[in-house]
């Protein structure tokens, strides 16, 4: 087992965009590490700051929030989410948690390459942070 596969990366996806995007990756039989756990939500704007901090404390190595970005069908949700993630970063710094373990990105229903790239980058970030 490679060190990447031993990680626990939580991938938060949106029902309308990145969850179907993750399915598209599967339909194309593109491969990535099994240390990845996809959860779907109506919109990640619902998570308070504590959700991310608690997840790290519980043992989640990295969190990728795959939002719908400017395609988000909910008025005002994306700017709110991005502000909140900014506040989570500040609290991560205060608590000495490497901020590269949390990433807010946008993934569409057919963003296969971007989906894989985000996972790869997150794995590298976590392993680098662990080595430091």
């Amino acid at each position: 087992m490679s060190p990447e596969d031993d990680l626990k990366i939580l991938i938060i996806t949106t029902m309308i965009s990145s969850y179907p995007g993750a399915n598209t990756v599967g339909q194309a039989r593109l491969q990535y590490s099994p240390g990845t756990f996809i959860v779907r939500v109506p919109d990640p704007v619902m998570f308070p700051e504590e959700f991310y901090l608690d997840s790290f404390a519980k043992g989640i190595d990295g969190i990728i929030i795959m939002s719908s970005g400017s395609d988000c069908p909910y008025e005002g949700a994306y700017p709110r989410l991005s502000k909140r993630v900014g506040r989570v970063y500040a609290r991560m710094k205060e608590q000495g948690i490497d901020t590269s373990r949390l990433k807010l990105t946008t993934i569409c229903t057919v963003c296969k390459a971007a989906f894989l790239k985000e996972i790869r980058e997150m794995q590298q970030n976590i392993l680098k942070a662990k080595a430091a």
Partner: peptide, 10 residues
């Protein structure tokens, strides 16, 4: 889609 099809080698 999010497990067997994407982790064929493991």
């Amino acid at each position: 889609e999010q497990a067997s099809w994407v982790h064929k080698g493991d």
